[in-house]
């Protein structure tokens, strides 16, 4: 791969290193799942291989569901890396705090619509944090990082997906977590319909109560 020149390390995440590179004179992202020395080599190889193969498949499925994701150019299971489209944009994590209340509400609604589209199509993202959502310079919202995702239609799994996002908002964006989650769910409801959304909200409460230390344990 002589045509590939790494330009800049963008992010060192939990499971992969994200770099900006030039590939056939095109700006691309390289997602490289490097060896994690803390993990047993056999376990490490298994996890990295599974996710390197699995993620592009899910990104493709998400695209089919109508959710903007980076286009995959190349999957290299020998070096455990994926070459994909570079999206010029900002992480929603950094945007939420600087938006006006209306803008934030609109963005959250949009997030909800995209999550709804994923779930409608049976795709579970698996790590719906605001680090994994990008807004490009044209206002188009992208979902990235499907490494923990799966294809699933079960209510339980969809519920966990949303529960994790809700908790993520509570920890990272506490000041407006409540409103944001409401907006997200109204966007979600737009795609999935009211009855299903009522059901899943009930499921989320059930999952929350299952946690170790939750004050409200009984169904109201």
């Amino acid at each position: 791969m002589d045509e590939l020149v790494i330009l800049k390390l963008l992010q060192k995440g939990a499971e992969a290193t994200i770099s900006l590179a030039s590939w056939y004179e095109k700006k691309v992202i390289i997602k490289s799942r490097k060896i994690k020395k803390y993990r047993h080599p056999q376990l490490d190889e298994r996890i990295r291989r599974f996710r390197t193969i699995h993620e592009p498949q899910l990104i493709y499925e998400a695209k089919k569901a109508g959710v903007p994701t980076p286009t995959i150019f190349l999957v290299d299971t020998k070096n455990m890396l994926i070459i994909m489209e570079f999206i010029q944009g900002k992480q929603v994590k950094h945007l939420l705090t600087i938006l006006s209340t209306t803008e934030r509400s609109q963005l959250c609604f949009k997030i909800g619509v995209l999550v709804g589209k994923l779930h409608f199509y049976g795709v579970i993202h698996g790590d719906l944090t605001t680090s994994n959502m990008l807004l490009d310079d044209y206002g188009k919202l992208f979902f990235i990082d499907f490494g923990l995702g799966e294809k699933q239609n079960e209510l339980e799994v969809r519920g966990v997906d949303l529960h994790l996002m809700k908790r993520g908002f509570q920890s990272t964006h506490n000041k407006f977590a409540k409103d944001s989650f409401k907006d997200i769910m109204s966007g979600y409801s737009n795609v999935m319909g009211k009855p299903f959304t009522t059901n899943i909200l009930k499921k989320i409460r059930e999952i929350e109560r299952r946690g170790r230390y939750v004050e409200e344990r009984k169904l109201k």
Binding site: L43, I47, G126, D127, L128, T129, L148, V160, L164, G168
Partner: peptide
């Protein structure tokens, strides 16, 4: 089984 869901 190795079960990780997001940060959980």
């Amino acid at each position: 089984p190795y079960i990780v869901k997001g940060m959980d």
